[in-house]
Amino acid sequence: MSNEHKVLLTIPMYPDMELAAAKTGSVLAELKDFNEEAVEEIQLAIIETCINASEHSQSEDKEVHIQFLVTDDRLEVKITDRGVGITADTLDGTRLLGRPTVHTDLRKRGRGLQIIRALMDEVVIESSPNGTTVSFTKKKTPP
């Protein structure tokens, strides 16, 4: 069996379809013996990215395209929508951080990006008026 596995998945922007992507990610991570915590973190990052795409992309095709690449020591996930792109202040997190009270700081749904950045080892966001791709990597920690 090859040490590298690539999986391509396209999901419609329907409620809970992010779970199909998360399940695929968890199966691949478990295949390479990622620990339980890492698998949960991968699932959450996939869920948040897919929800962001569904809720904010305004994509006409209403699809999210996901590419998984897993090797013995890392899982790379690339999630793409063909929507209108996201703004720079969302990308740099200035809308997400530093708010002083519970009443204002955490309500915006853009906080999903904050979660993804915290849980994954590498995160790259590329956005243009033709769509957005969020790529992230989770490295396997030694047992």
């Binding site: 992010e18 779970l19 949960e40 929800i51 519970v102 955490l106 309500r107 749904r109 906080r111 999903g112």
Partner: peptide, 19 residues
């Protein structure tokens, strides 16, 4: 087993109501 950011938002609303 899984809580997404929308679920977290709703938990925060409950915290606010209790506060």
């Amino acid at each position: 087993t899984l809580i997404n950011s929308i679920g977290i938002s709703i938990l925060i609303e409950i915290i606010e109501a209790l506060t």
